[in-house]
Design a protein around this nucleic acid. Structure first.
Ligand code: MN
Ligand code: MN
Ligand code: ZN
Ligand code: ZN
Lengths: 146, 146
DNA sequence: ATTCCACATTAGAATTATTCTAAATTATTG
DNA sequence: CAATAATTTAGAATAATTCTAATGTGGAAT
């Protein structure tokens, strides 16, 4: 609605996270949190950098890494590891799980409420559960008939 | 019982997997599958290489990587990814899950039977579930009182 | 508006885990 | 014992990520 201040919501979001709303962070936040094609995103640093460059945003890869980690620290993103040597950053920070398509290397959300995990042992003394990740790895091919 | 042929069981295991029982593979298999301190192992390539070297086994890091991947391909090991840039190889190839201690970077098995996962959506057409990983990430600190 | 400085960005080098290459070695077969 | 194919290996190469140290900038204070 505000064509005059198209970034004001994002500016607030960054400020609230204690991050200065710089040109680079703002542009990256826009790509991450306001995608043209709605919905949540699962993206690597390299991919985001490529998008930025394609969108005529001047930003270094180092800054993309910095920003992704800062956003993650601030709870705006979540880091998901499915393969050695590749980190995905997830704009969906709610409790949820993932399908991982092993061929294409794509992630797809599984809403957290609909999954129930039972029978997990109590965590050892002196530790607490920081997070539970469920990753359903999918490969090509029809599933077996029952 | 067989002091004469202490490796015969491992030799069979490798042969059955279509892998020549070379000195290197045998020594690595022994470290992996016959640990002094019983129980399953979660180990990185670097760690296994260090153990081998410490045990006066001459083997290159490249061969450790090769062997770990060959063992994994043969179903003798399973690869577990919990952190970007670090692969653990798991001697427990049964269906099971993991506690991950974020501070020390250690993995601990959670038996598969005792955990029940319900409400997972059906995998998309043309795909099948290759594996389901549940990783319970633990950090230091007492858990909240209820 | 100008100054100031803590915070932010950046190019490029460095690091880390892993893979590749091509030559030397070894296990098995005949 | 060859002969052959599989295996090992040192070292180079790659890929993702982090680090360094120099430069730039947002925004508070004047
Ligand atoms: Mn990270
Ligand atoms: Mn691998
Ligand atoms: Zn997600
Ligand atoms: Zn395990």
């Amino acid at each position: 609605m505000n064509k005059d201040r198209p970034y004001s919501a994002l500016v607030q979001r960054l400020k609230a996270a204690g991050l200065r709303p710089t040109r680079q962070r703002l542009a990256l936040a826009k790509l991450l949190f306001e995608p043209q094609s709605g919905g949540d995103r699962h993206i690597t640093a390299e991919q985001l950098h490529a998008e930025a460059v394609a969108g005529a945003v001047r930003v270094s890869l180092a800054t993309v890494y910095n920003s992704l980690h800062q956003f993650t620290g601030a709870g705006l993103l979540r880091e998901v590891v499915v393969e050695p040597g590749r980190s995905y950053f997830d704009t969906n920070v709610s409790d949820h799980h993932h399908f991982y398509f092993e061929d294409g290397g794509r992630l797809q959300d599984i809403p957290g409420e609909q999954v129930h995990l039972e029978g997990l042992p109590t965590p050892p003394e002196g530790t607490r559960v920081a997070r539970i990740d469920v990753i359903v790895r999918l490969s090509d091919g029809e599933s077996e008939a029952s």
